[in-house]
Design a protein around this nucleic acid. Structure first.
Length: 648
DNA sequence: TTTAGGG
DNA sequence: CCCTAAA
């Protein structure tokens, strides 16, 4: 399968990668889709922040990809966007943002969205007016979209030239300039004079800030007024700025400093700014959003000079907490954590932005469709599951620091396949597997395929419904057997048994509320602590049994599962019991799982089951006549001996 | 406390 | 997974 992955650079190294696939697979032609899916390449910091990928990283990824026969066109950092990555319609080759269908279209978004994932093959722009369009239109700022589609297509050839040839021209910046009074066009010129390159960003506030930053050589542009005198920023420090505050802020949430009070401002996040908002949202944790954001395109010294403190894990979690409250219907919100600044997307403002769940990569795990919505109870379950299932195996092969968080931009909506909160652990874990990047690419593709395959209008509705009753978000699992096979093949299984995420902090602290109330027979409610078993956990268990013997559960727990505080020795025992059962059930003649109706659980790979059985027999846990003694009719001891010698 | 086994 | 008996 050949893949063309184009990386479109813009906005200071914030790359979006449009997965364009020229493969034989009918399932993957995002290019043709009306709802273009755009991938951003970002690097994941250890603390989970997303940092826009740098050129080098992009190159590296490119190399890695090309190593794997995946073609990758790299586009240098030329254009600038105000973080607006809108969905291009490459298929039409024309900017589609004018949206002739108008605002009234917005009512139909759901239907359209549903339609839009059917047209994998077709190339019918009209079939997918798509939410993003109406979205963008709603916000009334069509021009925000920085990358016209054709640029996306042709940019690759010209880009490299663009990004090197231009030079700043500060001579144009003499005298006093009040950025506030400049038109966008003038701002563009100023921008060019400052940075020596063009920008297409239409966001005044952003431009102003950026220019100010450029001129002051600093990211610390805390002022809201932008008057420049002879290349210097004059801080008038006036409190007003009200004249343009309203509109500008609405358009450019990311531009706002962390000092703005987010919690109270009715944010009408324009759709096309959504991704920016995501990014900035992350950055807000550094309380200086413009920091790396603004310096990516400046020289490296600057960048290095001004790094901010990474957010603590706790901070991130608290943020999630607040968000979850906010999105779970009632805004119990911010009073509890007044210190947390965050962009609050009021769900009722943009109802169709609500989460949609998708099965990701055949992991049987539903992934929240929208990046930052619906952070309530089910979320942790989902993520826990996600982490423990194939997704992990899939991405585990990717190169640690080139691994990209896969953010799917679907129109103006964003899906995080990997949630930020889990990224640190993920990274650490992935660090054990320095190998090819291509898996990441595969991941992206798969995600895309899944994305395009899912009948999302339905699930969307469901989730919309579920929003009012968050507890009910229980989507049916979807499984794609093919992927199962595929990724099981490359998963940790094949690589030996010691790939445990030793640093992953499985201590369970963050996930202690995986508790689901389960009705007991007597009408009582007992709390069920459910935590799916990872493949690696299983393997560890098996290994433990083989080492210490079945029954020595506390031993195993102590020695092999020391880091898994949430697995009790009883759990181990139970799991072993289940494994045993499975192992005995599967091997017999008939193609075992053929009748599996619900393959929701990740099947345990045959080799493991085999080993389980082998161990069980070795340790005479299984009554010989139950296993294979049946056919031979031989004595238990005999069977035991022959069997084990046969396997070992 | 730990194991084993039933629910 | 939970519960409990038994060791």
């Amino acid at each position: 399968m050949e893949t063309v992955v184009r990386v479109e650079g813009n906005n200071e190294g914030k790359f979006e990668e449009t997965g364009v696939e020229k493969s034989s697979s009918p399932l993957s032609s995002p290019k043709l889709g009306g709802d273009q899916v755009v991938y951003k390449l970002v690097r994941i910091e250890g603390d989970g922040r997303l940092v826009p990928a740098t050129d080098d990283e992009i190159m590296e990824v490119g190399n890695l990809l090309s190593d794997d026969k995946i073609e990758m066109h790299l586009v240098g950092d030329t254009g600038q966007t105000g973080g607006c990555i809108c969905s291009e319609r490459t298929s039409s080759g024309m900017p589609q943002l004018e949206n002739s269908e108008g605002l009234s279209q917005s009512e139909n978004t759901e239907v359209d969205a549903g339609k839009s994932n059917v047209h994998l093959e077709e190339n019918d722009p009209s079939s997918a007016p798509s939410m993003n369009e109406s979205h963008i239109n709603q916000s009334g700022s069509v021009g925000e979209c920085s990358n016209p589609p054709n640029e996306l297509v042709e940019g690759q050839s010209s880009a490299s030239a663009d990004c090197t040839s231009l030079k700043p021209d500060f001579s144009k910046l003499k005298g006093e300039i009040c950025l506030d009074n400049l038109s966008i066009k003038e701002l563009h010129e100023t921008f060019k004079a400052t940075f020596g390159r063009e920008t297409t960003v239409k966001d005044k506030q952003w431009l102003k800030r950026r220019i100010a930053m450029g001129l002051t050589n600093s990211c610390d542009v805390s002022t809201s007024s932008f008057v420049i005198k002879d290349n210097k920023l004059v801080n008038k420090d006036k409190e007003e700025n009200h004249n343009n505050l309203g509109s500008d802020l609405a358009k450019a949430p990311a531009v706002r400093t962390a000092n703005d009070s987010y919690k109270d401002s009715p944010i009408n996040c324009s759709g096309q700014m959504e991704n920016l908002q995501i990014v900035s949202d992350e950055r807000l944790r550094n309380s200086s959003i413009d920091d790396d954001f603004g310096t990516e395109d400046l020289n490296t010294e600057q960048r290095a000079a001004k790094r901010v403190r990474k957010p603590t894990r706790r901070y991130i979690e608290e943020l999630s907490e607040v968000e979850s409250k906010e999105h779970s219907g009632k805004s119990i919100a911010s009073t509890k954590n007044p210190g947390l600044r965050q962009i609050s997307i009021k769900s009722n403002v943009r109802p169709f932005k609500m989460a949609r769940m998708e099965s990701f990569g055949g992991s049987g795990v539903q992934v929240p469709y929208v990046f930052r919505v619906r952070r309530s109870r089910p979320r942790k379950n989902i993520m826990a599951l996600m982490f423990q299932s194939k997704l992990f195996a899939m991405v585990s092969l990717s190169k640690p620091f080139c691994m990209l968080s896969v953010l799917m931009l679907y129109g103006s909506e964003i899906e995080a396949v990997i949630r930020l909160k889990e990224l640190p652990s993920f990274l650490q874990w992935a660090g054990f597997h320095p190998s090819s990047m291509s898996v990441a690419a595969t991941l992206v593709k798969k995600a895309l395929v899944v994305h395009n395959t899912q009948p999302n209008n339905e699930s969307r509705n469901e989730v919309l419904k579920a929003r009012s009753a968050p507890e009910q978000i229980q989507q049916p699992f979807t499984v794609e057997p093919e992927m199962n096979k595929q990724f099981l093949a490359v998963g940790p299984i094949e690589q030996g048994q010691n790939m445990e995420p030793k640093h992953i902090d499985p201590s369970g602290d963050a996930s202690d509320d995986n508790v689901v109330s389960v009705p007991t027979g007597k009408g009582g409610m007992r709390r069920k602590h459910h935590r799916a078993w990872t493949l690696s956990e299983v393997m560890k268990l098996v290994e433990g049994v083989s080492r210490y013997g079945a029954g020595r559960w506390s031993e195993i727990k102590r020695l092999a599962f020391a880091s898994y505080s949430y697995r009790t020795s009883v759990d181990l025992k139970d799991k072993w019991r289940n494994l045993l059962k499975a192992s005995l059930a599967q091997t017999p003649p008939d193609k075992r799982m053929n009748s599996r109706k619900h393959a929701s659980a990740m099947p345990i790979p045959a080799p493991i089951l085999l080993r389980v059985r082998e161990l069980a027999e070795m340790q005479q846990q299984v009554s010989p006549n139950l296993s294979s003694g049946k056919l031979a009719g031989s004595t238990g001891r005999n069977v035991h001996e022959t069997r084990s010698s046969g396997y070992l």
